[in-house]
């Protein structure tokens, strides 16, 4: 946070090295988030728009969150605005189906229990990575973004809620749905060696 304060002060003075530093630190995370929410095709444009918004808003940054969280929140907003404009935005309510329901009997016990996995083989499989890549780009944007921020960036739930502008309980639903879809793809791959259709 201390380095945030120094960086912000230098950015406000339009210091080029500060710009270099902030780009080096956050550009990759920004691109990844934009890609997850809105898709690869327009991720780069969203990041460009976000940078302009960031620079404009910087004097009003209130330091209630870290600089990273604040920056990523701006990216998420830009991405959502863009999706809304293109009528591609899926709100929290869409896709409410329980993907696992069919696997249990009326008594709530497993009807189709999970098959055993061979993690070593799965981890080494390039084909599985392709299947999961495909899945991540087909998931509703907020689901894949929530999962990435949690699992790969290791952010705390409160930061993820702040970035994606969702409640804690919404975040729990997003993470659960995303993990269940991943589980299904991995299980299908374990059984057939192929992606789900």
């Amino acid at each position: 946070m201390e380095s945030d304060a120094r960086l912000i002060a230098e950015l406000l003075k339009q210091d080029q090295n500060a710009f270099r530093e902030v780009i080096g630190r956050y550009q990759a995370a920004m691109l990844s988030l934009a890609r997850n929410i809105a898709g690869s095709a327009i991720a780069d444009e969203i990041v460009q728009e976000s940078w302009l918004a960031i620079i404009k808003a910087l004097p009003r940054f209130e330091r209630r969150s870290s600089l990273k969280t604040w920056i990523l929140r701006i990216v998420a907003n830009e991405a959502k605005t863009r999706l809304r404009r293109e009528n591609r935005y899926q709100s929290m309510d869409s896709g409410d189906e329980d993907f696992m329901a069919a696997r249990f009997g009326a008594n709530g016990h497993w009807l189709t229990p999970p098959v055993e996995w061979d993690p070593e083989t799965l981890l080494d499989s390039e084909d599985l990575k392709l299947c999961l890549d495909k899945l991540m780009s087909s998931l509703p944007g907020l689901q894949s973004a929530a999962l990435k921020l949690k699992q790969q960036h290791g952010l705390a739930s409160t930061d993820i809620c702040n970035i994606l502008d969702v409640s804690e309980s919404n975040l729990r639903v997003l993470l659960h749905r995303a993990r269940i879809r991943l589980f299904q793809v991995v299980e299908h791959f374990q059984q057939t060696g192929e992606c789900c259709e």
Binding site: W117, L123, Q151, R179, V186
Partner: peptide
């Protein structure tokens, strides 16, 4: 299995 699914995710390219 659910706890390990994220480990199978491809790393970020960038």
């Amino acid at each position: 299995q659910l706890s390990m699914v994220a480990a199978f995710l491809p790393e970020n390219h960038s």
